[in-house]
Design a protein around this nucleic acid. Structure first.
Length: 479
RNA sequence: GGCGACGUAGCCAAGAGGAAAGGCGGGGGUCUGCAAAAUCCCUAUUCACCGGUUCGAAUCCGGUCGUCGCCUCCA
């Protein structure tokens, strides 16, 4: 199995020390609704998580929640609520979104505010080793003491300073030094520390949590490409300086950015679509196929057309997973091992989900073909569901359709007064309006009364219910 | 300015030295009373452009044009 490691800039053989994999992925700052860029990132790492488990690894997966930071404080002030209230609210929303996208939970979701003692411990350690210094109530990391600083983002100190973007400040020894601990300003939440009242800087929490929950060396560290610099670069500097051990993380995996109208979608640009908005229009399988149909390291452009295409694909897979064969030719079936090995081959190559999906589509076609011949498709369907599950796809057909009394009445009126009984008819526990209409339509079809029969079908179609006449009977489907 | 990525059919997209995956859409056939679903066939003689290396290049090298990302909070 090969993975692309940002650190080396190459695909490398994935060789964790044993059967255990320690995985850390940077989480959210909960100050507003999660958007589809978050969906992309966490769907991707969910699939990586699932695939590692599929391969037999015992994975411990940790994802942090940055529940105190400048933006959160800012937003809370403007809304007149406490930072913890605000963070709590959007953290809850975040988990709702993750569940709705069928993303498996990580093992631990540590919160920055609950890890203050561990954070202080790491900061103290860094000061003791000369990698950090207190100044003006804050503590800064001494970048110059790390000779290989810049190894992840492949850049050097001189070039970064030359650009002039580094922030100078009276307290800092060097413009690229960054805060480990920030002195509290008035009206800001704070914790006691050896340096006075303050709060953790952005990067330190991830080092502290990874070291605490996963140990000194972790196997996979993930996040969006936009975190490579400075966030992950700083994490490496902090962690390796603190433990004296390299590497802090063996494999650094970064996903490409979601773009909107050819620009990165981000909070600061205000061009974002929330996960809730997207879920109102598309089901989770559709969204996951949209994301997984391209490579995780490439940027992905949001477009309605691409989502519609993904929906067509989701329907296709779900149909194949749920179709029924007559089973007359029980002697012919799907070559299960062929598809399984093709899927593994694709996923082993740096999680090539697009190719993995293609295998599922090929398998689906094979299932349908055999179904038409009356072959045994159960093994194929079982495999389809198993592999789809590795991609987090449920392949559940859209929920059983329902029809309300008013629409039912409309349809009865439209087909004329043929059924005075229909007007009096009431649904029961085992016969819904739709069941009744299908039964009546069937009788009409038997009598070759095509016009009223087709009228029922087209009326149902108008309210989003498609009737399919199959050898197994008439099946209603949601559009 | 520095570093990096990308440009493959109408759209999305895989492939990274030897016959252009897959999905959506479109056209035609089969099945069906008609549909729907499914299936079969067709839909890039060619991979932004120009040179080069090679027996052979979408894949490697150089250049041009275009798009985007990071260098500041961001998944």
């Amino acid at each position: 199995m090969k993975v692309f490691n940002t650190l080396s800039g190459q695909k490398e053989e994935f060789l964790p020390p044993g059967s255990r994999v320690r995985m850390y992925v940077c989480g959210i700052t909960p100050y507003s609704d999660s958007h589809i860029g978050h969906a992309m990132c966490y769907i991707i790492f969910d699939v990586i998580h699932r695939y590692l488990q599929f391969k037999g690894y015992r994975v411990k997966y940790v994802q942090n929640i940055t529940d105190v930071d400048d933006k959160l404080i800012d937003r809370a002030h403007r809304l007149g609520v406490s930072t913890s209230e605000l963070a709590e609210r959007f953290t809850r929303d975040f988990f709702e979104d993750m569940d709705a996208l069928n993303i498996n939970r990580a093992d631990v979701y540590p919160r920055a505010t609950e890890e203050i003692p561990q954070i202080i411990k790491v900061v103290k350690g860094l000061i003791a080793k000369g990698y950090a210094y207190p100044a003006g109530g804050s503590v800064y990391f001494r970048v110059r003491n790390v000779p290989d600083y810049g190894k992840l983002s492949h850049r050097n100190l001189e070039a970064m300073i030359a650009r002039g973007n580094a922030t100078f400040s009276r307290d800092k020894e060097h413009p690229l030094d960054f805060a480990l601990w920030k002195a509290a300003k008035p009206d800001e939440p704070w914790w006691d520390s050896p340096w006075g009242k303050g709060r953790p800087g952005w990067h330190i929490e991830c080092s502290a949590m990874a070291l605490k929950y996963l140990g000194d060396t972790i196997d996979i560290h993930g996040g969006g490409k936009d975190l490579i610099f400075p966030h992950h670069e700083n994490e490496i500097a902090q962690s390796e300086s603190f433990t004296g051990l390299k590497p802090f993380a063996r494999y650094w995996l970064h996903n490409g950015m979601l773009q909107f109208n050819t620009e990165k979608m981000s909070k600061s640009q205000g061009n974002l679509i929330t996960i809730k908005e997207m879920l109102a229009r598309y089901r989770a399988d559709t969204i996951r196929i949209f994301v997984l149909n391209s490579h995780y390291r490439s940027p992905l452009s949001y477009s309605e057309e691409a989502l519609e295409a993904a929906e067509g694909g989701a329907d296709r897979l779900a149909q194949a997973a749920n179709t029924v064969s007559s089973g007359e030719r029980d002697d012919i079936g799907v070559d299960v091992e062929h598809y399984r090995s093709q899927f593994i081959r694709a996923m082993d190559d740096d999680f090539n989900t697009a190719r993995g999906l293609a295998v599922l589509f090929d398998l689906a076609r094979d299932i349908n073909r055999l179904r038409d011949q009356g072959g045994n498709i159960l093994g194929g369907q079982q495999l389809l569901l198993e592999l789809a599950n590795v991609l987090g796809l449920t392949l559940i057909l859209p929920a059983k359709p329902s029809l309300n009394a008013a629409s039912f009445r409309d349809i009865i009126d439209a087909i004329g007064t043929l059924y005075s009984e229909a007007k009096k008819w009431q649904p029961s526990a085992n016969q819904s309006y739709i069941d009744y209409l299908i039964l009546k339509r069937d009788q009409l079809r038997q009598a070759r009364q095509w016009q009223p029969s087709d009228m029922i079908r087209s009326k149902l179609d108008e309210v989003g219910i498609t009737l399919e006449d199959t050898p197994q009977g008439t099946i209603p489907r949601y559009k």
